[in-house]
Design a protein around this nucleic acid. Sequence first.
DNA 1: TGATTTAAACCTGTATGATAGGTTGAGTTA
DNA 2: TAACTCAACCTATCATACAGGTTTAAATCA
Lengths: 243, 243
Amino acid sequence: MPRHHPPKPPADTAPPTTRVDDAIRAMTDYIHGEGLKVGDKLPSEAAFADRLGVSRTVVREAFKSLAAMRIIEMRAGRRAQVCAFDASVIALSLTHALRTEQINAQQMWDARRAVEMRTVALAAMRRTDAEAAGLLGLVAQMRSSVDDLAGMTEQDIAFHTAIADATRNPLFPVLVTSLTSAIRETNPIVWRHRRDTDARREVVEAHAGIAQAIADGDPEAACAALAAHFDLASRALVTAGFN
Amino acid sequence: MPRHHPPKPPADTAPPTTRVDDAIRAMTDYIHGEGLKVGDKLPSEAAFADRLGVSRTVVREAFKSLAAMRIIEMRAGRRAQVCAFDASVIALSLTHALRTEQINAQQMWDARRAVEMRTVALAAMRRTDAEAAGLLGLVAQMRSSVDDLAGMTEQDIAFHTAIADATRNPLFPVLVTSLTSAIRETNPIVWRHRRDTDARREVVEAHAGIAQAIADGDPEAACAALAAHFDLASRALVTAGFN
DNA sequence: TGATTTAAACCTGTATGATAGGTTGAGTTA
DNA sequence: TAACTCAACCTATCATACAGGTTTAAATCA
């Protein structure tokens, strides 16, 4: 029984690879193959077009794709160069997933808990004295600006980032920033819940506990304090009727 | 002393925003504003060009950028549609960071430890019986194919992914896959170290411990077993003279 | 001679127009 | 009603053109 309009599975089968895809592959291979590092320059668009035997249009779209993924950086007049790793790509990816409801805020919070549970432990082991002082200073700031929601938000970001920095592992600041910004961008529920001063004071004290444990160089205590912090947030989510 | 060719900070100041950037912003705003979900179609390139008052060239580069970030999916003939969240973007970003030595394998392993420490705990609490059986089955397979390095690698990936799946949090499989694939792509050291059968048997037993703890529904034991697993890997890294 | 200016060469950003080939849905036919 | 055809629409790619940054080296001035 020959069904014409052949086996065209209505949905998605093999996404046929396009010349732009090939070009993207060729370029990442080039970067890897030549051992290019951050700041190193790539050949011009024309050069790539020549080498790959495609039009500049294709090369350009490939370049733009890589630029979007922060693998290269493009600016008018100068050649594309290898770009520094940063949180923006992962943050955008996560934000998109949240916005389109492929994951929810609670799940994002849980991933963040997983990552930060390690960052506080490492921070407690590796922090410098200056970093410990910095964390305690941030807490002091939070205490004094407990009436200023915007300011406290700022300081909260700074606090968690500072902890991630203290791990000496550049991957952690990226992950923490990505997860945190995605949550914040799409889910101010927890902060709304912190309307009343009491709730915010509670939050500040949770931070104080974490900072103190890190300053004391006590990983277990730091983990416990962080767990308390996240439980607080979790409870707020539930109270606010999370999605 | 007026230096002409004015204060042009040789490096990087303000990356001037281009029309493509504006278009990208407009498109993500559109997706968010219209509340589009996975699979929903976007307007045609011509329509966007019209609406934004730019050429199709600009729209196309913007579309390709979003496609590269897996925010939309493009295919010849049909309209672009909102794309499902997957690990490829984060994986590529991490792979690039590794290749360009912005982070090293040890740091990547540590992030993976952080994430998986949570996945095993959650898996122990949430796994279905089928999933528990599946994990034990994978371990059995590993035991029997202890002579087949390629096979074991496959099963190792499947194992860790299965645990992440059992958390019921779709973010975890993505993170685990991204971190794992990045490591594997650029750092086969640990696997090379598993040349001799004894080392591999040790690895298999580490996995067995994790699987059993998850099957038992014992989060603490699962974490302990995973820690043992990662310490093994860590030792292998050191032995092999990590970078 | 050495610092400065200038301009040419090169590059990217954007626009326009054209063509080939994939997709879809409205008719049309068996 | 199921299968087929085709026109309209859409994306993939190319060629060409030009405006406006950047870089480099020649030209010029102190």
